[in-house]
Structures are given as C-alpha cells and as structure tokens.
Design a protein around this nucleic acid. Structure first.
Lengths: 75, 75
DNA sequence: CTGTGACTTATAGTCCGTA
DNA sequence: ATACGGACTATAAGTCACA
C-alpha cells in the first residue's frame, strides 16, 4: 500500500478517535482543512514537517502515522 | 529534536551500516547525492514519497526512519 | 566521498468557491 | 462537516560548481 494512504488512514483514524473534525485538527496543526482532507485521502504527498505538526496536534508521535493498519502491538 | 534531524541521522546510520556511499544510495533511490546530503544533515524537509524511495533503497520500512536514536531492537 | 550555496522547475500548501 | 476544483504563493525537488 502507498505510504500516503497508510498515513492518511492513520491520521483519520486517530482524529476520529479523538472526536475532532478536520477543521479542528487543521486549525490545531496550522494547516488547511482542504489540505488535510487530501492528506487523509492519500492524495497528497506531505512533507515531514507538516506530518510532525499533524502528529503533534493529535498528541501522538509522528512514527505512529506510519504504522500498518490491523495492529501495532510491538512493545 | 527536529524530525528532520532524526530522519537524517537514521538514514545516515543505516546507509553506513550497509556500507554505501551517498552516491550509491542516491543512485539507488533515484535522487541526487547533494540532495541526500541535505536530508542526512537535517537541512531538507523531504516529502513522504522521497523518504519512501530512500527507505526502499535501504531495504527498510519507512517507519524505521523515524525511530529515536539509541535503539533498533529487531521486531 | 561529502557539504554548501545558488539556482530553476515542480509541487506542496493556501484560499476561494462550490457541492 | 467533508470533498473537489481552480488559481494562486511558498517551498520542496532536483541540478550544478566548487570547497
């Protein structure tokens, strides 16, 4: 699966878990809702700095945005 | 620590572990040596697609590029 | 072999409207 | 609240000469 889709799905999942709207998250991460929409949809190719801002706004580590769906048991 | 530095250090470490030169890796990842240098030095802000190419050329998962230094505990 | 500055071209990321 | 598109601007991508 494309990394962009992987990341996008993770962003969307965490965002929904936290009960945030795209607008809310976008605001917190200081990016645009329309852009966030594209990222979640795997249609954008974000830079690491933007991903870091998103991860930060979601209160997770950026590394979690790259985990494969299904499980992330590890430690 | 800045994500870019984190990623850069990881790229450099893995590259050296594999005994590759920047030129070699850059060639495999289809990027320029000078650009790779900037990424390793944490001076560039690469997109996920570029990181994916680098990770692929290093034969590792892109997620490993975001790990914090000090550990690389198998899986 | 690697790092830097300068540069051009491509695209990330914004902002507007609309559905 | 989310997605899509167009037009725009900021910055990443990609290349080079040289230290």
């Amino acid at each position: 699966m494309d990394v962009r889709a992987r990341v996008g799905q993770n962003v969307q999942k965490v965002r929904r878990d936290k009960g945030l709207s795209q607008e809310e998250l976008a605001h917190r991460a200081n990016i645009h809702q329309t852009y966030l929409s594209g990222v979640e949809g795997g249609k954008r190719n974000p830079s690491v700095l933007v991903l870091a801002r998103i991860a930060n706004a979601l209160e997770i580590d950026i590394i979690d945005l790259f985990r494969t769906h299904g499980k992330g048991p590890s430690l």
